[in-house]
């Protein structure tokens, strides 16, 4: 029985040998112990391999080829275009799905609190909105809304007893308020004046709310509230200083101008002119009247 697998293998290798067009004798010479068994089989292998397979009728062959290729003759989009379209569609579908998903998450995050997993999304949405603000007024308006939101969050978290989350809201409150201050500080002219007015108004309302919260807050919430209140007061003081400084700056050039006008084109002071009037002079009354009028205006201010 052990002989058979050995001869199966020898026959198989012999078939390969003959199919490659190599001579029978050469192969048999390499297997003298099996020569008697392999020789007749080798002749059969040669005979079978040299006998042609039954072939189809050429007319049938041509007809089937026509049908075969015609079946596939539906417009074949070049692979590259197909891939591009597939890719474009996939990208579009993914983008839409992403937009819908992100939109839903953003919507869901609107009322989230600092202790919610969606809170970072809410903050991100605020940041994006703030980055897209077109001017200083719009930016201050957005920050003003954020300040109100932070106050509400702090209140809710204190009521809930989550002081850590309340602290997050109060920190946000201070940051948003500081940002309004920065915006006001970096603006100029009438904008600066208006934005500081706004900041003062926001700070005053903020302090009122914080003071109210502080009145009823539990002990562990008081420290955070006090610090927020102190920061707000400090900001308000600074803003008021900026406002008065701004007013002084405005008045100063006006005074200088007035002084210049009062001195007249000749550069002489009014006192000097008065002295001149007492002394014999060539000045006419119009000039005198005019100078007095201007002086009265100045005193009126």
């Amino acid at each position: 029985m052990a002989k058979e697998p050995k001869s199966y293998d020898a026959v198989d290798r012999m078939i390969d040998h003959i199919r490659k067009g190599m001579g029978i004798n050469e192969y048999l010479a390499g297997h003298p112990e099996m020569r008697k068994e392999l020789a007749p089989l080798a002749l059969t292998v040669v005979t079978v391999t040299e006998t042609a397979m039954p072939k189809p009728d050429p007319r049938f062959k041509a007809s089937l080829r026509g049908r075969f290729t015609k079946q596939t003759a539906t417009p074949v989009i070049p692979a590259r275009t197909l891939d591009f379209r597939k890719l474009a569609l996939k990208t579009l579908a993914t983008s839409l799905a992403l937009i819908i998903l992100l939109g839903s998450i953003a919507m869901a995050s609107t009322n989230s609190m600092p202790n919610s997993p969606l809170y970072p999304v809410k903050k991100l949405v605020e940041t994006i909105r703030y980055a897209s603000a077109t001017d200083g007024d719009a930016a201050v308006e957005l920050k003003s809304e954020n300040v109100q939101t932070r106050l509400k969050e702090a209140q809710a978290m204190i009521e809930e007893g989550d002081q850590g989350a309340a602290q997050v809201a109060l920190t946000g409150l201070r940051q948003d308020t500081a940002e309004i201050y920065r915006l006001a500080l970096e603006s100029s002219g009438r904008d600066k004046e208006r934005l500081f007015d706004k900041f003062v108004s926001i700070s005053e309302r903020q302090q009122a709310v914080l003071a109210g919260l502080l009145a009823t807050a539990p002990e562990d919430a008081r420290d955070g509230l006090e610090r927020a209140l102190a920061a707000s007061k400090h900001g308000l003081e600074n803003a008021q200083q900026e406002q008065s400084k701004d007013k002084q700056d405005k008045n100063q050039p006006a005074n200088e101008d007035k002084s210049k006008e009062d001195n007249g084109a000749d550069g002489r002071s009014n006192d000097q002119k008065e002295k001149d009037q007492q002394a014999p002079s060539s000045n006419n009354g119009a000039t005198e009247k005019s100078d007095h009028g201007k002086d009265n205006n100045k005193n009126g201010r």
């Binding site: 397979m53 039954p54 072939k55 062959k61 089937l64 080829r65 075969f68 290729t69 596939t72 692979a79």
Partner: peptide, 30 residues
Amino acid sequence: IKGDVQALGRLYDLFVDDIYGYVFYHVGNR
């Protein structure tokens, strides 16, 4: 595989005789 008609035609040319022969040996009639 991508639907190239020319390639399908060439594959047909390459293998139709073998397939026909194989089938013919089994069924024995044209």
